[in-house]
Amino acid sequence: MSSRDRKDLGHADPHKTETPKEREQRKKKESENHEEALQETFPASDPVSPFIPAKAPE
Rank of each mutant, 00 (worst) to 15 (best):
M1E: 15
S2L: 15
S3V: 08
R6P: 12
K7P: 00
D8N: 04
L9Q: 08
L9P: 06
G10T: 03
H11L: 06
H11E: 10
A12E: 08
A12Q: 05
D13G: 05
D13N: 15
D13Y: 04
P14Q: 04
H15Q: 10
K16H: 05
T17V: 13
T17P: 02
P20G: 05
E22G: 10
R23T: 05
R23V: 09
E24S: 15
E24P: 03
E24G: 07
Q25N: 14
Q25W: 12
Q25V: 13
Q25T: 14
R26F: 10
R26G: 03
K27P: 01
K28S: 13
K28N: 11
K28R: 12
K29S: 14
K29G: 04
K29Y: 02
E30R: 08
E30V: 01
S31L: 15
E32M: 11
H34G: 08
E35R: 11
E35S: 11
E35Q: 13
A37E: 10
A37N: 02
A37G: 02
L38E: 15
E40G: 07
T41H: 03
F42W: 08
F42E: 12
P43Q: 08
P43T: 01
D46L: 02
D46I: 08
D46E: 08
V48G: 04
V48I: 15
P50R: 04
P50F: 05
P50E: 11
F51Y: 13
I52Y: 14
P53S: 08
P53L: 05
K55M: 00
A56E: 13
E58W: 04
E58Y: 05
